[in-house]
Write a protein that binds this DNA or RNA. Structure first.
Lengths: 225, 225
DNA sequence: AATTTAATATGATATCTGTCATGTTTTATT
DNA sequence: AATAAAACATGACAGATATCATATTAAATT
């Protein structure tokens, strides 16, 4: 099993602020785990007793709405931490995490990391910054949801996914989402998401290779209003 | 000018985690200020060099959308801190703050409080919890925006405002918002907000006393779907 | 390979919401 | 008090989106 001290993944998250000693200690109590595509990592209302450090893959964080739809609030990729917020607030999770890919994660028990949060101010500052950033993102999402059309939101989502999670060698988006997932990010009916994507295809803004989507005209997508 | 050590307001926010010494020091460099209703406290893009501790009154945090609407993202009342996030992320504010009432605030320079954030882990944990809570709220707002109707959102907003900010002796909501404000919270056109409120009135769910709104049937509002 | 199931696609229609127009009431200003 | 300006209200209509129905295609299972 890999050692945290040597793990390059931590460069991308708050764990980089930990000292070598702290990392060695955490390394001793962490557990590595593989999560299969579609598997639920934790559910809404579940109490988390630690955080996940995502070594590979991607997952969605979603919240069930009263009308039965599963609104996707955020996506967490390789390099990021999962479950930070619940850890800090010491409340049950308000979101469900589901793997979108096969994932590799390390699970770090709360007991270990919580102590570091209080002792190592560099670490807590990093976590603070992380959350400040998430809050800013949330504000943007709220404004988009409230003020933009489904067409606009979907166009922006495609560009966001491309920019944030990258593309395959053939130019298709590396994250494979169902039309239902797209609908649940954008906050619309699955049929509407399908319709808009078909429209984008007709307009030459995107193309599809099997289930994969390729952005053909990024500027065009950004121009939509 | 009041002293932070003796100020009861701090009980309601993270500042309560500061030591007496830290409070005395902050007290020495803070500035008290009165802000008039309608006044802009800080603008989107402005760099904040401190945080505001709200001693009295209420303000809205909003973000201008591309279509010219000013989406209200959060309201900050007496007892809460304003500008925490920008302080932590060390970025310009992504939101505008505007007073909804006459307000009384204390302004604490960044230099002072930033040091405490790194030295006093109890304080930084409080701020962390605060932000974790805000993030949870944001998730709920996103889901509401994405999945609920204007009618539902407006009903929930009325109940939220009543529960969070209280009522006057005659039962009217103590926070006085324009119909445009309601529209900007809910994310709809001003005319739509007006229409829905008129509808609520016809249905006996609310009544109005001048510009003030009184909830007549809270259960009814919660039942809307 | 055949069958079942799930995902994608598209049409028809109803509903919701935004926009524009216009009128009324309230508030601010002279 | 008179006037101007802002806020509130409501109708008419258009456009966006949800819902329901029904194909079609792709993926999973037997």
């Amino acid at each position: 099993m890999g050692k945290c001290e040597q793990c390059i993944i931590k460069q991308f998250n708050s764990l980089k602020a930990l000292t070598k000693d702290e990392l060695v200690r955490i390394s001793g109590c962490k557990t590595s785990r593989t999560i299969k595509k579609g598997e639920v990592i934790f559910e809404e209302g579940e109490t988390l007793n630690g955080v996940y450090c995502v070594k590979d893959g991607i997952c969605k964080l979603s919240k069930l709405s009263e009308n039965g739809k599963d609104q996707i609030v955020k996506m967490v990729v390789k390099g990021q931490l999962l479950g930070q917020r619940s850890l800090i607030s010491e409340e049950a999770s308000n979101l469900q995490a589901t793997a979108l890919n096969d994932m590799e994660v390390c699970y770090i028990p709360k007991s270990e990391i919580f102590a570091d949060l209080q002792k190592n101010s560099k670490f807590s500052m990093e976590v603070l910054k992380d959350m400040a950033h998430d809050l800013r993102d949330s504000d943007d999402i709220i404004v988009n949801m409230a003020q933009k059309s489904v067409r606009q939101r979907l166009a922006e989502t495609l560009v966001y996914i491309s920019d944030s999670f990258g593309t395959n060698p053939d130019g298709t988006l590396s994250v494979l989402l169902s039309r239902e997932d797209y609908a649940n990010i954008v906050g619309t009916a699955t049929e509407s998401a399908i319709r808009v994507l078909s429209q984008f295809k007709k307009e030459g803004l995107i193309s599809t290779v099997g289930k994969y989507i390729k952005i053909e005209n990024s500027a065009g997508l950004k121009r939509i209003e």
